[in-house]
Design a protein around this nucleic acid. Structure first.
Lengths: 215, 215
DNA sequence: ACCTGAACACCGTTCAAGT
DNA sequence: ACCTGAACACCGTTCAAGT
């Protein structure tokens, strides 16, 4: 069934474009269909205009991705408990959010996000490290690292399962005579669930940050 | 001046296509002009054929990137000294190689590389950790992490300086009343050169890996 | 100032058809 | 089996021209 034609005056007036409007549409497409569908052309289409019009409100695709991250970060909730658990919990939440959108995680990795919610996240993490007595220089450099690791871990997902499988095979088939060290720990290399490994990784990094003086 | 037409028999016979040939051409373009220029169309063009022909020898772009990484890794040289310094040195070399091609680093992050030189790198790192008395499970999980960090750090480069600058500004302008923890360590957040921070990061992570038992 | 149509300059991958 | 021309199904960004 065809839609009945709608005359210009019956159709709701096209709302004026705005940065918030652009981001809201992009966010909806992201949530419903994934990052691949968030193209300038598609966002513009849903706003009844052409892609060129968006460049009045966003500088480029990278900036739009940054804005999307900040929107997603509003799902971060308060954490509780001791500082170590707090850091792990908060970074776990951050990872969980990004893990749904591996493509966005890849963008974020090169983005240096600057939105208010991201700065808030940095501030909260710094507060927890401070509470734990981590010296300021280590805390400052460490927060970058913790966020990088959580982001990279989300970015790693959603590559082809094919190449995942390729590495597993290559390692499993590695001749122990040629690769003695791989041979010795072959089982350990594949052990553990993603979550177990991620949790251990965060714990280890946190430990190192707290224990390693700068210069 | 136009090139004189070359008859079919004067022109050197077009060498048959091969996987190695495809990779060799891609590697040359990568070294001379960067990853953006390594397109299927361009590689095919230099081999006097169309892009479709390459798919006989490489499954897709991701696999080609994996092959390029493995070629680049032949520049890794032997390391010496104690195990800690060895790990830092080797990962420093790895980072230096990837740092020239941030786009490739981004690919590698989602790639799970499986080439022989990458497996060799894993084996060498495992050997060093073993030498240092790091328990096998920690070593196995830790190598993944160390490589992930080195790769992510190379991938971060070569985003717009614009967004780099954006984050620095956002942090510098953050109101200390709103973001007290950022306020407290503002200088530390920007301190240090890239190399100093990278070296510290690797040291801290290595420390954590060695000190944090699995499960 | 804001908005846009149209163009610019490309992509990776597939597939039917050839040899 | 290997190879390919042509097409499919798109991209982000710029810019001259309009309002």
């Amino acid at each position: 069934m065809r839609k009945a034609p709608v005359s210009r005056r019956d159709r709701p007036a096209k709302p004026p474009l705005s940065r918030d409007g652009v981001i809201a549409v992009a966010l909806r497409i992201l949530r419903e269909e994934g990052l691949e569908k968030v193209t300038m052309r598609r966002v513009a289409g849903e706003l009844d205009t052409g892609p060129a019009s968006l460049y009045v409100y966003v500088a480029n695709m990278a900036e739009l991705h940054g804005a999307l991250l900040d929107e997603l970060l509003s799902d971060l909730s308060d954490i509780s408990g001791q500082w170590r658990e707090g850091v792990i919990d908060l970074l776990g939440q951050y990872h969980e959010i990004l893990d749904k959108y591996p493509g966005l995680a890849r963008s974020v990795l090169v983005l240096r996000p600057a939105g208010p919610r991201y700065i808030r996240l940095i501030d909260t993490l710094l507060g927890l490290l401070h509470e734990g007595g981590v010296p300021p220089a280590q805390a400052a450099w460490g927060v970058d690292l913790l966020l990088q690791m959580a982001t990279a871990s989300a970015a790693e997902h959603g590559g082809d399962e094919q190449s995942d499988q390729g590495q597993i095979e290559a390692v499993r088939d590695a001749d122990p005579a040629d690769y003695p060290n791989v041979g010795r720990v072959k089982e350990e290399l594949f052990a553990g669930t993603g979550m177990e490994r991620r949790r251990w990784a965060l714990t280890a990094l946190l430990e190192g940050i707290a224990a390693t003086p700068v210069a």
